[in-house]
Design a protein around this nucleic acid. Sequence first.
DNA 1: ACCGCACCCTGAGCGC
DNA 2: TGCGCTCAGGGTGCGG
Length: 291
Amino acid sequence: MPELPEVETTRRQIEKIMRGRRIERVDTTEPSYFFLTPPDRLRRRLGGRRIERLDRAGKYLLAELDDASHLLLHLGMTGQLFSSEAASVRLLSATARSSLSPEAQTRFEPDQHTHLRFVFEDRGTEVFFRDVRKFGKVEWLAPGQSSPRLDLLGIDALLVTGELLFDVGRHRKTSIKAILLDQSVSAGIGNIYADEALFLAGVRPGRAARRVTRRECEAIAGFVRQVLERSIETGGSSINDYVAPDGSDGGYQDERKVYARTGEPCLRCETPIKRKLVAQRSSHYCPGCQK
DNA sequence: ACCGCACCCTGAGCGC
DNA sequence: TGCGCTCAGGGTGCGG
């Protein structure tokens, strides 16, 4: 779900709200898998700090604080970072929504899945991090402390080149899709945009990376950059239950050509789209267009 | 060094 | 109506 475009869209919207503001306090849920830094420590470290900026590295968000420490966030599969200003019941599933009172449906209240709540000193708009499945992550980094997670990231996917994919691919004994999903090669591509870019490039996801030509690698890289940029332009997104921080649906859903279109006719040649497991991810491709 | 796989977690959707 | 099953994909870590 949240791949580079969704994370970048989130960054742009949330930075506007967080930047330059001082945190009065942070509310958290209980310790869990989600917290790389224990929640009590997180509350202590963040209280009183001003947020200088919000950056993105691959699918990670990195907030810089005024004491030179950093807050690292990852949305995982179901993470949502949003503001109270824009928060709406659209963040909840249809069934969860229908169980709420009409009043509760118009104003967001933190629930058991809301792991972080930023309350600012000016008591204005609040920011929430909600994550149902807890695949998301939050970690506080002391000044100067490096993060293995960040250090492992390859070049940002918006800058990926065919040359890089070709050079990496020729030495690996795995599929081209696995290369695209490998965050240490290029950071930011997820399952959906990988399928879309491979479709546009005419290369099947399961093809051995070493069998992909230099020319094809150039095409793949070009389409990766294109679909990511296009998705950011349209407000980022790719999947049914993604909701942007302002509560709106992402705009990219209507542009998917293969992802989640199993059995439907290819938009180019009308061959039914196939679904197959590649790199432990459901992968969608057109047997007619992709070789 | 690299690959494939199990696992972390919860909700939606489906068949019976 | 409700139970049990499968699926969803982000990342980590381990065995081969």
